[in-house]
Simulated assay, not measured.
Amino acid sequence: NIYAAYTGAHMKELEAKQALWRKYGMDDHLLLDREALRKLVDSEAYCGGMLDISGGHMHPLNLVLGEARAFESLGGTIYEMSPVARVDHKRARPTVHTREGEVSARLVVLCGNAYLGEAVPELVSRVMPVSTQMITTAPLGEELADALIPSDMCVEDVRYILDYFRLSADKRMIFGGGTVYGGTDPADVVAKLRPNLEKVFPRLKGVKIDYAWSGNFALSFTRMPQMGRIGANTYFAHGYSGHGVTGSHLFGRTLAEAIDGDQTRFDMFEKLPWYPFPGGRLFRAQYSTIGSWWYSFKDAVGW
């Protein structure tokens, strides 16, 4: 994985991160100057960056499909298209209510994240849905694709509102970015992301975009994920703030341990403090947007 820096201030931030992580035994992050980064990502947009030699990238849809198959092979049942309207977690056996019925269970684990909606009012103020967008180009061909990212690594820049991208197996450029607080979708995803794509890779100016989509992640005010319990037998985990693939798997294991009787790691996470968003539910998106303008200004001027 590569963290790309636009400014000297970004490089100082990466230097500080490298020093902090080394204190905890993570000595696998290498700082890169402009020339070293250019050998990995052929873009003039960046002044340097940092290489995480322990990182990697995967196909997240294939991951979840594989996990679903494993779950079903062990006797589990997945009910799709069954939105939950509310959860009564105060009973000894919590009850999940859908539009067409209800399910009573010994234990309930709430993992709706950005899509939990109003089903559990106690959790609504803990996180805010935020949408991020992605586009995928037509196949670029091996020669062009390998020239743009010779390392075939995944890349993200370190701005507050960041871009992130990688190559697919069939040599398309998958490019993501953009943020809409509150979880609404922009009217035109391609129009929003194409300028950033072409800024990073001018050689892709006018390239055909085959796919474009938008989806939500759950942002916590502190950017730390949250795990806990409401009622005696209802657990929850959410707020991964853009790092859900890693965070949800860690929390899934921790929740499984807690349900199986080992509360050690669960208790540590449950005790971490959380803070509501300024402005409450009504104005949290507006306040967050205004705050993002300030940090985006700092990124632009190199503070």
Rank of each mutant, 00 (worst) to 15 (best):
N1Y: 14
Y3D: 10
A5E: 01
T7Q: 08
A9P: 10
M11F: 10
K12F: 03
E13G: 15
L14D: 09
L14Y: 07
E15P: 12
E15Y: 09
K23E: 08
K23C: 03
Y24I: 15
M26G: 09
H29G: 04
L30C: 09
D33E: 04
D33K: 03
E35M: 12
E35C: 03
A36D: 06
L37I: 04
L37T: 05
V41T: 01
S43C: 07
A45Y: 05
Y46P: 11
G48R: 04
G49D: 05
M50W: 05
M50V: 11
L51V: 03
I53T: 15
I53G: 10
G56L: 05
H57S: 13
H59S: 14
L61N: 11
N62E: 14
N62A: 15
L63Y: 12
L63G: 04
L65G: 06
G66F: 03
G66E: 08
A70I: 14
A70T: 14
F71V: 04
E72S: 04
S73G: 02
L74A: 14
T77C: 05
M81V: 12
P83V: 13
P83M: 12
A85M: 06
A85Q: 14
V87W: 00
V87E: 06
K90D: 10
R91F: 06
A92S: 13
G101C: 06
S104T: 15
R106A: 15
V120Q: 01
V120M: 13
P121R: 12
L123A: 05
L123R: 00
R126G: 12
S131D: 03
T137F: 01
E143P: 10
L144F: 02
A145L: 08
P150S: 10
E156W: 15
V158G: 03
R159M: 03
I161G: 11
F165C: 01
L167P: 05
R172E: 10
G177Y: 04
G178F: 01
V180E: 11
Y181A: 06
Y181E: 02
G183L: 02
D185S: 11
P186S: 04
P186I: 12
P186W: 02
A187H: 05
A187S: 07
A187W: 08
D188C: 06
V189N: 09
V189M: 06
V189I: 13
A191N: 00
P195H: 00
L197I: 01
E198P: 12
E198F: 05
K199W: 12
P202G: 03
R203D: 07
L204M: 11
K205I: 06
V207K: 11
K208W: 11
K208L: 11
K208H: 15
D210I: 09
S214C: 11
S214E: 09
S220A: 10
T222W: 02
T222A: 13
M227A: 09
R229L: 07
I230Y: 00
I230F: 07
I230C: 08
G231A: 14
Y235V: 13
Y235A: 04
G239M: 06
T246P: 04
G247T: 07
G247M: 07
L250P: 01
F251E: 11
F251Q: 14
R253K: 13
D260R: 14
T264M: 09
R265G: 00
R265S: 07
M268G: 06
P273R: 02
W274I: 08
W274C: 08
Y275I: 10
F277V: 01
G280I: 08
L282D: 11
R284M: 00
S288I: 02
S292Y: 03
W294P: 02
K298Q: 11
A300K: 15
G302F: 03
W303Y: 14
